[in-house]
Design a binder for these strands. Structure first.
Lengths: 178, 178
DNA sequence: GCACATTAGTTGCGTGCGCAACCTTTTAAG
DNA sequence: CTTAAAAGGTTGCGCACGCAACTAATGTGC
């Protein structure tokens, strides 16, 4: 693989500039030239890769140590130690599909980490609440998760972090998230 | 759901500050108080949600219009119009599992968008190359994808964009990506 | 030259997920 | 009140994915 792969990388390196530069160049090129996209500089791909990497980094906490999958971790984090809430509310705030939420809840109930009680005011809804074991796990889990976030963001200084959060806000707003 | 949900949101709003502030507060609180995490302010979750949103936004181009799934789109974007490369190279640069790459390639071969030829120098490898139809799709697809990226990033000014890319670089480096 | 480890790529298997369909309860319309 | 529509939640089905095991080819040690 050595020789030819180096050639490939040399080719890629020559293109190692931001994509928006290509966009500028298009109009200056003859229309027969196909514009090129370098995936590793393409924002949607970068965000996906980064999000996956961050999730894997965080999963060392909630998965390796507590045996939770992402949907279960999100449910626990959303229900929280003091609140009672519904599956629908979790689906809304986490943007997970309601079936994914439903199955995560089922797992957590089976492990006796949360409990379900049908709401007397609206018997379609189920009130969700952490059990004692669930609150104990929460109390152990959350500080570790926050510490992971802190460690991750430590590579940005205060001003960079502020600017980064601002950018996330803007992008979320553009996409109609948040 | 109206009344109780409003109560929930009121509770959430009172907690609507960045999580790092909680981290600071912990030491100032009695140790019996459980720190709280608001998922919608938690960076790993925000990144996942943003990446998903951006992908959905982009998929209107490669999925609705060209019938490509994410892995196939990534393979086409990586192979590119001029290069020949291997499945392994695609797996490395996209960080996709090699089986995912293998299946994406199989689909694309079946649709006659890329062609496989075993490398004479190393007969384990398969040289991948876009077919004529593949190059035609590429030429149509890439400008649309770049335009989507441009539209997304238009919500940031030049300085904010520079800072945002810088932050992504740092985070990628911290996680050993890139 | 032969044995063993390593690499490129594919495939069977189990699983998690989204979709659609469904049940139950509540709300809206007439 | 009756009927239809809508909302909360669960489940069957099909599919994509990751893991582990496999084939085939190359590289390494002696």
């Amino acid at each position: 693989m050595a020789a030819r792969s180096d050639t490939l990388f040399a080719g890629a390196s020559a293109l190692s500039v931001r994509n928006e530069i290509f966009a500028d160049e298009i109009s200056a090129r003859p229309p027969t030239t196909t514009p090129t996209l370098l995936l590793t500089n393409f924002t949607p791909f970068r965000l996906n890769r980064l999000a996956t990497g961050v999730s894997e980094h965080l999963s060392e906490v909630y998965k390796q140590r507590f045996g939770l999958e992402i949907p279960e971790w999100r449910v626990i984090a959303t229900v929280g130690p003091a609140f009672s809430c519904t599956a629908q509310h979790i689906a809304d705030t986490t943007r997970m599909h309601k079936t994914r939420v439903s199955r995560a809840i089922a797992h957590l109930v089976k492990r006796d980490l949360i409990e379900r009680a049908s709401n007397a005011d609206d018997r379609r809804e189920m009130e969700l609440r952490l059990t004692k074991a669930g609150r104990a796990m929460y109390a152990e889990l959350i500080p570790l998760a926050l510490e992971r976030e802190r460690a991750l963001l430590a590579c940005l200084n205060e001003e960079e972090l502020r600017s980064f959060n601002e950018a996330l806000d803007r992008l979320e707003e553009f996409l109609g998230l948040a």
